[in-house]
Each structure stands twice: as C-alpha cells, then as structure tokens.
Write a protein that binds this DNA or RNA. Structure first.
Length: 483
RNA sequence: UCCCGAGUAGCUCAGUUGGUUAGAGCAUCUGACUGUUAAUCAGAGGGUCGUUGGUUCGAGCCCAACCUCGGGAGCCA
C-alpha cells in the first residue's frame, strides 16, 4: 500500500476536519507521558503551534518510542480526533510512527526550555527550530512577499542591480574587495603598485554598498523601479542595528519630488505593518508575549508604552510627523535635556549632524510617533541629493522609528547636470568613474526621487526583536561569518 | 574602533573579607505514576571555574595581558 501523503500541521490545526486518517512529518519538541501513553509535541514549521501526537504502546513499539526524543524527526500516521485534553482542539492518535532522524538527547543542544538569544546565535544552524526563530522567519518571509506585492501592485519593475560593482563612487561606506588575485603574490605594474588590470574583471571591484545609482538608471527608462537585494558594508560597526551583509529595498521613481517620496515611503511602511497584522497574527502574538516577558525586569522608563501589536497598529493607522531639519534643531535647542546638559552632544547651532540621542528624543519623547526629517544641510548629505533653492539644504528625508532609529533614508535626486557635476567635483569624485550616471542627466533628464529601506531594521520593528543579528538567519558581523 | 560589563555543569545562574570535598534550577539517565500540557515525584551521573602569566602558605574570588560574548557610542540602512 502506498504511503499516505503528508499533511501540514497548520492545515490540521486550522481546518475543521476530524476523524480522518492523516500523516504528519516534523520535529519533536517534547515527549512526556507514562507506561500507558506518550504525548509527542510535533512541529513542522508550517505554523507556531505544535500538533499533539498520542502514542499508545499497544500500537507503537517500545523501541520506536525510545528513539523519539526532543529534536528527532518523525513521520506519524493515524486518526485525527478531537482532543481529550484541555490544551488543544485536535490531536493525532498514532497508528504508525517512523523515526526519520534520531537526535541524541545527550548532545542535542535545544531543550524544551527558554534559551538566551546569545546561545541561540551560537547554534544558528538549529535555531530555526525554536519557537522564536520559527516565528521570526515566517514573519520575515511574509514581509519579503509584502514588499514585492506592494510595488508590483503599483506597477513598479523589480531591477536586479549588480552585486559586484566596479564603481567606487557609491560613497555609502567601506567596501569588501572582490578579487581572484593571489594575495600572497599579487601582480604589480612598473611602479610597483598592485596591477588590477590583471585581476578577473580587469579593474578594482567590490561588493555593492547600494543599488541606488543603477536603480536610477532604471527609473529613467521604466518610470518606477525598485531593488531588493543583498548589500555589503565593511564598516567595523558593532551594534544591535548593523550587519556587514544585509538586505535593502530601494525604490526609485521618475517625475517624483520629495513630497511624493515621503508619501510613498509612508504608505509603504503602513502597508507592511498592516500586512503583518493581517497575515502573521499567531506569530506576532507569540512575539508580543515574548517581548513583554523580556521587558518584565526592565525599569519602567525602558519599557515600551505600547506592546508589539499596538505599535504595529499605531504605525498602520497614524500619520508620521513631518518636519524640516531646521525645525528639529529649534525643538532640540529648546528641549529640556539640551538646556540641562543631558545630551552628550549639545545642540548649539544649525548645521550640526544629529546624533542618535537627538533622534531618539524627537521620536520617543517629543512626538511619540514615527518622524520624517527633511531638508538637511547639504554638507552633511550625499552628492546626489537635490540642492534646494536656499542653496544650503538638500531635498533629503530620513524616517526615524522608535527603538530603531533611521529605518529609511532617501531624497529627491539632483537631476540638473551642471549642479550635479559641480557637486561631484566638490566631493572629489573622479568624473570618469560616474560618467554613466552623469549621462542620465545629459540625455533626457527628469526630476526623480527614491529611498532605501534596511530590510532587517524593518524586521526588527515588525517582530519587536532588539538585536539585528536575531532577524537574519546567518548574521555577518565583524569577526563573525560562521555557518 | 572607543567606553562599560560578563565568561563557573548541556542551558540559566549562585558562590560571603582569598581558606578543607565548587552549589541550585532546568536538561540528561534510571525508577514510579491510566491523558500529559515547559507533566509530576524519587534517585543518579555530569566541572581543566574563558586562556596565559603573576601576587599569595593557599586563587573561582586579587592583578596583568589576550580571547570570546553582550550593552552603549561612532559610522550608517
């Protein structure tokens, strides 16, 4: 007789059917019971909840039962019935169980107990089997899908910008060199310098730090495009919100100004929050409870005023606070912490770069909502941002979220050839490196705008996690590239 | 990279002014229990106290360097 097909646990727990014969396959979370009956909590990753499997020693041999331990993988077949116990609606009365893969309980590191996130990071190959990471990974997937859905429904074209780049003008940070040269004995030119002409691409190449410049090329033909790809920064950043390898979403829109750009970014973030609420309820409820548990021991002023679900609802339903850099400086200058010297960096005058303590004050204390800051001083922003009429500020915008800081950074782009060339020169960027970028301003230029959203920072917000290393399967940080 | 903190059993932690044989809970193993919900109850096994060096009659504890991890800052998304 052919083996019956596997049914996913999610379908069994959400469906109405009982008293049917089904087969499930998954990983054992716990087994408990006595001589007369065993209860196996089985998880197959399709949802957070486990399916309870009831194993009667009359049907399942002692030898099989002995091999069913925490972490083992089994296939079980039997009758799905209404549960006699209180903890679940349905359970599976096992008629046959096959052990697909044993897990030695003496050495299997995951136990049916609470583990620290630090420990789970050390066993990143097994941590998706924990409730927390299962939930995070399902939410992460839902957000990946929602990003594509949002832009697709609006008629944006997804562009795959290069991962290996020969452009060193992106200016977004330190880069990882890509080479096939023998590091111990690299080819040299007559002057004794390393001769990149002999390298694989015939020039110096690096991993991309941004797809923006190439995305702009797309926007100047397709109108509305977005990228969603891996991004690499070789900065020696050791924080809870930086990774050396992360994923970034960069829409770029022709005929859009800063206002359109803010509208798009705000609509996008609201859509994502709502999508999570509508599609990840079970996982979000679990993550909410988890966060409340974590916060229990924190002092009152460090606790979130709203829980995870409430924060997502807040973002989905409330307009972001928009203000200019100049207005923000005024607020900060006259703020209590500034006057009382509580800021490490006192705000004295217009032109200063905002520190994270200032951003946090605006978002978490003053407005208590997401904030969009616009029109920063030109000299603290990138060369491609459009110069405003005051010739002091640029049409930039940063979206700041509570607990996370900058989640979006964007701008209207400088579309005027002469102004852009001037800025390229002023920043010391060799024109021959960006000739193709300048060409778009030479041939049929158009006003346009775009922004970048750090995907993992979004996932931090949506899951309520606080360390970025816990929202990506295999985090890359300085000194760590395990797995 | 800078500042602060932490490394003790598989995990989470305690360990007094430096003093005999380093503890607990959970996990694991064995036994008990007729339906459990992180099952419960009884017992057992399990340690190079991050590494190296120093101070001392004596170091888990004091000192130094290094390693690893965490938090904060900078840089940024």
């Amino acid at each position: 007789m052919a083996e019956s097909k596997r049914t996913k646990i999610k379908a069994l727990l959400t469906g109405e059917q009982v008293d049917v014969n089904v087969r499930v396959k998954g990983w054992v979370r716990t087994k408990r019971g006595n001589k007369n009956v065993s209860f196996i909590a089985l998880n197959d990753g399709s949802c957070l909840a486990n399916l309870q499997i009831v194993a009667d020693p009359n049907n399942i041999s002692e030898d099989i039962l002995k091999r069913i331990t925490t972490g083992a993988c089994i296939s079980a077949e039997g009758q799905l019935v209404a549960s006699q116990g209180a903890g679940q609606k349905v359970e599976l009365n096992a008629e046959t169980i096959e052990v697909l893969g044993e897990a030695d309980p003496e050495t299997y590191p995951l136990q049916p107990k609470r583990h620290s996130l630090e420990f789970l990071r050390e066993i990143a190959h097994l941590r998706p089997r924990s409730n927390t990471f299962g939930a995070i990974m399902r939410v992460r997937h839902a957000m990946i899908f929602a990003v594509h859905k949002f832009f697709h429904d609006k008629g944006f074209v997804n562009v795959h910008t290069p991962i290996i780049t020969g452009s060193d003008a992106e200016g977004a940070g330190e880069m990882f060199r890509v080479t096939t040269m023998d590091l111990a004995n690299p080819p040299k030119d007559e002057e004794g310098n390393i001769d990149f002409k002999q390298d694989f691409f015939g020039k110096e190449t690096n991993l991309t730090v941004s797809g923006q410049l190439e995305a702009e090329l797309g926007a100047m033909a397709l109108g509305e495009v977005y990228t969603f790809g891996p991004t690499f920064r070789a900065e020696n950043s050791n924080t809870t919100r930086h990774l050396a390898e992360f994923w970034m979403i960069e829409p770029e829109v022709a005929f859009a100004d800063l206002e359109d750009n803010m509208d798009l970014a705000e609509e996008f973030l609201k859509f994502l929050a709502k999508y999570a609420l509508d599609n990840c309820r079970e996982d979000l409820e679990f993550l909410k409870e988890r966060a409340l548990q974590e916060e229990k021991n924190l002092p009152a002023d460090k606790k979130n005023e709203l829980n995870l679900i409430e924060r997502l609802e807040f973002v989905a339903n409330n307009d972001f606070q928009r203000l200019t850099y100049t207005e923000a400086i005024d607020i900060l200058k006259n703020s209590k912490p500034n006057k009382k010297g509580r800021f490490q960096y006192k705000i004295e005058e217009w032109g200063a770069d905002l520190q994270s303590e200032h951003e946090r004050f605006l978002v978490e204390k003053h407005f208590k909502k997401p904030v969009i800051l616009t029109d920063y001083p030109a000299k603290i922003k990138a060369f491609y941002m459009r110069l405003n009429e005051d010739e002091k500020t640029v049409a930039a915008m940063d979206i700041l979220f509570p607990g996370i800081g900058e989640i979006v950074g964007g701008s209207q782009r400088e579309e005027r050839y002469e102004v852009l060339v001037e800025k390229v020169k002023a920043m010391g960027i060799p024109e021959e490196h960006v000739w193709w970028y300048l060409d778009t301003r030479k041939f049929g230029t158009a006003p346009h705008a775009g922004f970048g959203l750090g995907f993992e920072r979004l996932i931090l917000f949506v899951t309520g996690m606080t360390n970025i290393r816990d929202v990506i399967p295999f985090p890359r940080t300085p000194g760590t590239a395990e797995f």
